[in-house]
Amino acid sequence: MENEKIIGELIEMFSSVNEDPSFDYSKINEETLIFDDLGLNSIGVMYISLSIEEKYGFTISNEMMSNIKTVGDLVNLILNNKK
């Protein structure tokens, strides 16, 4: 339940940086690859990491970021660290 809520909040963040109006956000699930499927570049990822820090109140280290490949990894990171 909480996973779905976080995915919903992440979709909001992805949509704020993705300019493609035809992108289907309903297809995003825990297996979605951040770089390949969402088409985010490094700047987009940095923007989203800052948004996550602001929203969930924790700092993302480079080590944490290096382990993130999918939306599911991001959800787990938030669940384990959020304050």
């Binding site: 940095m46 990491s49 280290s61 480079n62 970021m65």
Partner: peptide, 15 residues
């Protein structure tokens, strides 16, 4: 900042 990697820590410090 590490120019060859995704250095989110440095960007967080800047922010």
């Amino acid at each position: 900042i590490n120019r060859n990697a995704l250095d989110v820590e440095s960007i967080s410090k800047c922010s």
